[in-house]
Design a protein around this nucleic acid. Structure first.
Lengths: 109, 109
DNA sequence: CTCCATTATCGTTTATCTACGATAGACGAT
DNA sequence: ATCGTCTATCGTAGATAAACGATAATGGAG
């Protein structure tokens, strides 16, 4: 333990509070999912149109189709969005529960 | 076969709503700052102790000092935390405004 | 079956992150 | 001035991300 007894007026001496490892990792995981402008836009888009979208996402993003597909995969893996096959197309939609989880975890920071 | 597919039922045909580029990028930037478990822990720690902390952070994290310092730099660059030199030590504290901004941006997703 | 549209995946390149040890700089104390 | 402490930076290595084009896979239409 360091010998810091004097002049601690600047520092709060309260107990150290850290989130559990699992919580911190989940928070980081969800935050990371929206840690890219393209993914922010996708989440925003899906969150505001209640239902799914498909290749429209690509049209609204100045990125190659394969790149968008990769971002969609990342979002899907994080649980934030879900994809449903509808014929040759795929409809994506928000997973409201995961989005709520993200908001909740961030709000508790 | 049905002439009309389920698409028109599943998909909201409303206008496409996307956040402005600047907004999406700021959201991504702040999200990225907490997109690592170590940085989540640091932010959480600083947010719950009102004032600053220094090498304690290192002690509470099973990472090398240089690595922690790098994470602190990232957080500082994002604006989420601030560092104040106090003699040979450096006291870090949360930037409440930036933290509020992060929470606000995420909550609006 | 063949063609077309839609997505996902592969392979590659480039850039960035993450982690560490070593080292330099700043400061108080002796 | 020198020493010990604390923190930031440098240099490096390995892993991962981001972007693209090319290609495969799926399924509807003709």
């Amino acid at each position: 333990m360091a010998t810091r007894k004097t002049k601690t007026q600047d520092c709060d001496e309260g107990p150290v509070t850290l989130p559990s490892d699992a919580l911190a990792e989940r928070t980081a995981q969800l935050a990371w999912a929206v840690a890219h402008p393209a993914r922010v836009r996708i989440v925003h888009l899906l969150a505001h149109r209640k239902a799914c979208v498909c290749g429209e996402i690509v049209d609204n993003m100045s990125l190659a189709q394969s790149t968008v597909s990769q971002h969609l995969k990342i979002l899907k893996e994080s649980g934030l969005i879900q994809g449903e096959v509808d014929g040759p197309k795929v409809c994506y939609c928000i997973n409201p529960e995961a989005l709520r989880e993200l908001k909740s975890l961030i709000s508790k920071l």
